[in-house]
Simulated assay, not measured.
Amino acid sequence: MRGAGFAAALMLATFVAGCGQGDGQKAAAPPPPAVTVAKPEQRTVSDYDEYVGRFTAVDSVEVRARVSGYLDSIDFKDGQMVKQGDLLFTIDKRSFQIALDQAQANLTQARSNVTFTEADLKRAQQLVTDKSITEQLFEQRSQAYRNAQASVAAADAAVRQAQLDVQFTELRAPIAGRIGDRRVSPGNLVTGGTTGNTTLLATIVSENPIHFEFTFDEASYLRYQRMATHGDDIASRGRGPGVDVALKLIDDKDFAHQGHMDFVDNVIDPSTGTIRGRAVFANANGMFTPGMFARIRVPASPPYQALLVPDAAIGTEQARKYVLTVNAGNTVVPKYVTLGQVLPGDLRVIKEGLGADDKVIVDGLMRARPGIKVTPQEKTAQAQKK
């Protein structure tokens, strides 16, 4: 009996001790999670369209000879920069100099004949007055004088043509730019002329400034045309420089190169439904090369006041985009928004769905859920580093 009573007393003591320990370790409710909030930044921005295009030279010339002959010398290095008027090629000019000397001799002979026929005509004028010669003989001498004058004109033209042929034996750069490699070596026969299969000697392309050509669709063209009614014509056709544009090379992180539009074509290609546009950029350092690809950014709207939030604060719910905001009661409330472009600094333009006084959660998004209470800490809206 004494053993049974001791066991019962031990169980009761254990039960009472267990109940006391549970009451002492009862956990308190956790505090609301801390998040960082910021009001949207307000800024004047413009919408932009981006297109892929290619650089083209403002001027491009194929160097071909105007006279045929054997190539005597090459006076440039392949790929060098040349100035307008620099000597590039020389064709053997000996045969052309001989032709010039012959033409000058013929001109001297023709002028001598004019002097003789002119004196003969003056004598005939006195003789026909005295009736010493017939009218027919006087007309013959007049005709001889006129023929001599015509011979002088023809000989003079032959001299000028021979002088041009001698001049054409020296091929000079018609434009300033970078010349390619020579296509013909000295000693080869060069076929010249203005028609037929002439010999291509080299090519020259200008570098500064340089054009950038791209195409855009019909819908974009209509949008630009409507902008033009407000004085924002994309190309300002015939009215000075067009709108400012920016360009990014394939290894650039941002649109760092500035230029302006200078041309939009006058027809839409019916096969593609696109129209060709062109911008011009300074290229003093020779960074841009004809044929190089790049991306161009073109203004697509007049400037307007926009709200911006860090792009990292944007969430996705199926096809909809949203941001998490905190209301006056510190409760998380999602707001569905319409997005615009991303600006430098990873700031996203919000076109619809957000107010200027809304407090957007920009940090601590993993701790925030719609409908829960949070502890907001305010700071200025800025891009979050990735």
Rank of each mutant, 00 (worst) to 15 (best):
D363Q: 13
R369C: 00
N285M: 07
Q126I: 10
A176L: 02
I268V: 15
I91S: 05
L249D: 06
V152I: 00
S46P: 03
D233A: 15
A148Y: 06
D101R: 13
A148E: 02
V152F: 01
I275W: 06
A313H: 03
D357G: 06
V184A: 02
T90D: 00
F6S: 11
M227D: 08
V82L: 04
F15E: 09
K359W: 14
F15L: 15
T272D: 00
G240C: 04
V309L: 08
A300T: 08
A110R: 07
Q109K: 15
V128A: 14
L10C: 12
L164N: 11
G5A: 14
A246D: 09
G24D: 13
K386G: 14
N285W: 01
T90Q: 06
G355F: 01
E207P: 00
E41Q: 15
E317M: 05
K131C: 00
P334H: 00
D244I: 13
A7T: 08
D363Y: 12
A246R: 15
E135Q: 12
A173N: 00
T338N: 06
D233N: 13
S68K: 05
V184D: 02
G24L: 13
M261L: 07
G193S: 05
F138I: 00
K335A: 01
L107H: 10
Y322P: 02
A235T: 09
Q102F: 02
T272H: 04
G196D: 09
F281D: 02
S73G: 00
R2H: 12
G187A: 05
L71I: 03
Q84S: 10
N197Y: 11
Q318N: 13
V360C: 06
F6L: 15
I268L: 05
D217Q: 08
G364A: 01
